[in-house]
Design a protein around this nucleic acid. Structure first.
Lengths: 178, 178
DNA sequence: ACGCGCATGTAACCAGTTACATGATTCT
DNA sequence: AGAATCATGTAACTGGTTACATGCGCGT
C-alpha cells in the first residue's frame, strides 16, 4: 500500500488537489512512483473516509477543486509505515522477459524496441539532470533535502543502469545478427 | 501480460509441471520475473484453454503431475509478443517512497530496514555470481546463451545498483543523525 | 502412525489499468 | 460556437497476493 504513503508524503510537503497530485506524480516524483488520476482520486476518498486527511472545496477555480490536507492521524500512519520495513520490491520487467524469449524463438525484431526504450531512458535521464542542476547545484544542507537528493540520484542511476543494459543487449544482437 | 510469455519461454527451454516452473522462477529466473504457484497454475490453465500449450499427466510420480508443452500456437504468440515493443516498465519501489517520507516526518527508524535490505541484495548478488561462474566461465558461443548472459548481468548490475543506493542512503542518515 | 515434501488447486481480496462520463472555464 | 484544459469521478477488468484445501508418497 505505498500509493497511500506516497500521497501522504506529497501532501505533507504541500496540500493539493487530486489533479495537482497526478501532475506532480507525472513530473518530479515519477522517478520513484507513479499513478493515474483515477487511482489517486480513489485513494484520496478512502483516506478521507478513514480520517487520515481532510479536504476543503475551493470554489473560485473552475469546477470545484478540493484541496487535501494531512491530519495528525495521517502523519502518524506515515511515520508508522516508514519504520515498518519489509522485503525489497519484487523485480518484474517485461524487457528482460523479451530478451530471454528472443534467445529462444530466434530473431523477432527486438532491436527496434530496444532502441526505442533506450531513447526514452536517455530523455528521462536528461530530465533528472535538469532537476539536479536546478535543485541541488550546491550540496543540500538539511536532512530532508539530502534525502530528496538521494532519491533523485537513485533515479538517475537507474536510468544509467538501463542505458548500459540496453547498449549491451544491442551489441549482442548486432554481433550475432550483423 | 508478461507472466504468460515468461512461462512460454521457460516451457520452450524445457517442458515442466506447474510446481517445477514455480521453483525455476524462484531460482534461476527470479532476477527478471517472479510468480507464486497459484498464479502459475491459473495462467497455465488459461493457456491450455486457449490452445497455446498442452499438458500430459504423468501418473508414476506422487500425485498426478502434469507436464506442459508449448504448442505451435504458443510459439507463434511468443514471437509476436517479442516483436511487439512497448514502454519501459513503470518504476514502483516502496523503499524510495520510504526515503522521501523519512525526510518529511523526521527520523522514523528507517536505517534498520535499509541495512536489512542491503543484506538481502548482497545475498542475491552472491547467488547470481555463482550462476555466472557456473554457466558463463567462458564467453558464450551461441546467440541464446549470449542473451541469457545479458539478462544475468542485468540482474547482477541491478543488485550492485541497490547496494550502492542503500549505502548512500545510510551514509546520509548517519551524517545527520550521527 | 505421523510429519514432511510434492503436487494441484479454489476463493477472496487488493492494486493498477483502461475506457468512459460529466461539467465548468478559458482560449480562439 | 467550438476546442482545449481543468477538475472530478464511475465501471469493468486484469494481474498479483494471501489464505486455505486436498491428496499422495516417502522417510522415520
Amino acid at each position: 500500500m505505498s500509493l497511500r504513503h506516497a500521497l501522504l508524503t506529497a501532501l505533507l510537503e504541500k496540500p493539493a488537489s487530486g489533479l495537482e497530485l497526478a501532475k506532480r506524480f507525472d513530473r518530479s516524483i515519477a522517478y520513484f512512483w507513479n499513478a493515474t488520476h483515477q487511482q489517486i482520486y480513489r485513494e484520496l476518498s478512502r483516506m478521507e473516509a478513514e480520517g487520515l486527511i481532510e479536504s476543503t472545496p475551493e470554489e473560485n477555480a473552475r469546477g470545484v477543486k478540493k484541496i487535501h490536507r494531512v491530519l495528525p492521524q495521517g502523519r502518524k500512519e506515515l511515520k508508522r509505515w516508514v519504520g515498518e520495513g519489509g522485503d525489497p520490491a519484487p523485480l518484474r520487467d517485461p524487457m528482460m522477459v523479451r530478451l530471454r524469449a528472443e534467445g529462444v524463438v530466434g530473431p523477432a525484431g527486438l532491436a527496434d524496441s530496444l532502441r526505442a526504450q533506450r531513447k526514452q531512458h536517455l530523455a528521462k535521464r536528461a530530465l533528472y539532470r535538469e532537476f539536479e542542476a536546478k535543485d541541488f547545484s550546491k550540496s543540500p544542507a538539511d536532512r530532508a533535502a539530502a534525502l530528496r537528493y538521494v532519491v533523485l540520484k537513485a533515479g538517475l542511476k537507474y536510468e544509467d543502469y538501463w542505458i548500459e543494459m540496453l547498449d549491451e543487449a544491442l551489441a549482442v544482437l548486432d554481433e550475432f545478427d550483423h
